[in-house]
């Protein structure tokens, strides 16, 4: 598969939709086996490993989250949270067929709600995609929140 710019854009939209529809196992399958989800704690954070992040998770940890969200004894999901992504048109930052590197940049607003409480987040998602077995997969999804250093209450789903 040789992805076009439109393929990348479609992928980013489809990814957000899977989260909004709580189709988490399908969402998880979008990650490459060595894929990572990263939400830095600091503005312009460079280091993934040697400083704290809000999230920095490999596929195993993401799988834990996905299974937990539907768990019988997951009390913080009784009732379940709902979320909604509002994405700006993803910008294609890089298409490198030779090395199989595809990068997009997507400003977003995100709402997550449970009971009467609604959390609104805004930021930028940077996807680094690759092709595995003829399909686009996520190698890295980096989510920078505009207020990454603010005190948050629970953020339970996936931004």
């Amino acid at each position: 598969m040789t992805p076009t710019a439109q393929d990348l854009i479609d992928f980013v939209y489809a990814e957000a939709r899977l989260i909004d529809e709580r189709r988490f196992p399908e969402w998880l399958a979008l990650f490459a086996d060595d894929g990572m989800y990263w939400m830095p704690l600091e503005w312009n954070q460079q280091d993934q490993w040697l400083t704290t992040s809000l999230m920095h998770e490999d596929k195993l940890m993401l799988q834990v989250r996905v299974e937990r969200l539907e768990g019988e004894r997951t009390f913080s999901q009784k009732p379940k949270s709902r979320c909604q992504h509002l994405l700006q048109l993803p910008q294609v930052d890089e298409i490198d067929h030779e090395n199989g590197v595809y990068r997009t940049y997507t400003p977003f607003h995100y709402a997550e709600t449970r009971f009467d409480e609604q959390l609104i987040l805004a930021g930028w998602a940077r996807h680094q995609l690759c092709v595995v077995d003829g399909a686009l997969k996520i190698r890295m999804k980096r989510v920078d929140l505009v207020n990454c250093d603010a005190p948050f209450r629970n953020i339970q789903l996936f931004v």
Binding site: M39, T51, L54, M55, S76, P151, R153, N154
Partner: peptide, 22 residues
Amino acid sequence: TAMYNRIINAPTSIVGHDDLEM
């Protein structure tokens, strides 16, 4: 240490979600 902090103590951590709920 950094991993422990983010998987246990973060507002985005599932262990944190369990505790806050209680």
